[in-house]
């Protein structure tokens, strides 16, 4: 049966990889190419590369950067930011991307979803929506990095993009972005129940158990996160191992599987008893040559 997916969201401001907190504050991380290489080797199921400032600053997608990062990325790569016409899709795919993510452009010109879907297939179109609760306490889709209200209801908008030919929905909660409080499960569940295409949950993961909740409580087909994967060795493998232990059907494809480790909720490895540690020996695995 098809596995649930763990997706790493790499947020860029032009060429700089950053962490985002509430769509307001940003912490610099470094180069996208390095992050992509690490994530791809650490068992990630997919990578999303989003240039958050491209649309706002009127830039086209950076195809040189995409070509560089995709060279050693042997997992699916979705590229977002600055895509406003079919020609942009052609350019990023030629540079090595597998799918595109539309946000602002889909709201401005919903027909673009259909055009891309017909030319490149529905599997190529991810529609990303940033949602927060408005002053009336209702969920609303916001554009332009969360600054501009659109009046769109997330469930209706999701059904509409599905009928226009979108292949997947990336559902991001602005309120939860960088909060470490976990996914907005109500939001994800209502959208996932309303559409027949896969929904990717995003925004707010602070503990490894949040990934599990996204799947088991909200019914997301894939769970994504950005900040939590940075600065931690084997972060994505540990997340997947944690999910597998919690009963989520997920792929563990590397030699490091952390199957015999015990974690706390945040995914930190707990110390084992001295008696157990005395029994451990080291074994050397040769690097896999293909």
């Amino acid at each position: 049966m098809v596995k649930r997916r763990l997706i790493s969201c790499l947020l860029l401001q032009n060429e700089l990889l950053v962490q985002s907190i509430g769509f307001k504050r940003y912490l610099p991380i470094g180069k996208a190419k390095i992050a992509v290489e690490f994530m791809a080797n650490w068992d990630i199921d997919e990578i999303l590369l989003i240039d958050m400032t491209a649309t706002r600053e009127g830039r086209k997608p950076n195809t040189d950067l995409i070509a560089t990062v995709s060279r050693n990325c042997f997992v699916p790569l979705t590229v977002g930011g600055g895509i406003s016409q079919v020609g942009d899709v052609k350019a990023v795919i030629r540079a090595g991307a597998d799918k595109v993510s539309l946000n602002w452009a889909a709201i401005q010109n919903p027909k673009l979803i259909t055009e891309i879907s017909q030319s490149f297939g529905a599997q190529c179109v991810v529609v990303s929506m940033d949602v927060k609760k408005n002053a009336q306490g209702k969920y609303e889709v916001f554009a332009n990095s969360g600054t501009e209200a659109t009046g769109l209801d997330p469930v209706q908008w999701a059904s509409k993009v599905e009928s226009l030919g979108a292949g997947e929905i990336l559902l991001n909660s602005i309120d939860r972005d960088g909060s470490k409080l976990g996914y907005d499960l109500d939001l994800i569940k209502t959208v996932a129940d309303a559409v027949g295409i896969p929904v990717i949950a995003c925004g707010g993961v602070g503990l490894m158990k949040h990934f599990v909740e996204g799947v088991t409580k909200a019914g997301a087909d894939a769970v994504a996160a950005a900040n939590i994967f940075q600065h931690v060795e084997h972060s994505t493998i540990v997340a997947k191992s944690f999910m597998a232990k919690a009963g989520v059907d997920i792929r563990l494809g590397t030699l490091a599987r952390y199957t015999d480790f015990v974690f706390d909720d945040s995914g930190r490895i707990l110390k084992r008893s001295d008696a157990e540690l005395e029994q451990i020996w080291m074994e050397r695995f040769k690097k896999e040559e293909i």
Partner: peptide, 30 residues
């Protein structure tokens, strides 16, 4: 189930030779 079928799934190998030589017994593909 949702259509399209997107994601990693486990394949069952019927003929090992030549494509699936040295393959994991339960390989996952995208």
């Amino acid at each position: 189930l949702r259509i399209p079928h997107v994601g990693w799934n486990t394949a069952t190998i019927v003929k090992q030779d030549p494509l699936f030589q040295k393959s994991d017994p339960k390989p996952c593909y995208y």
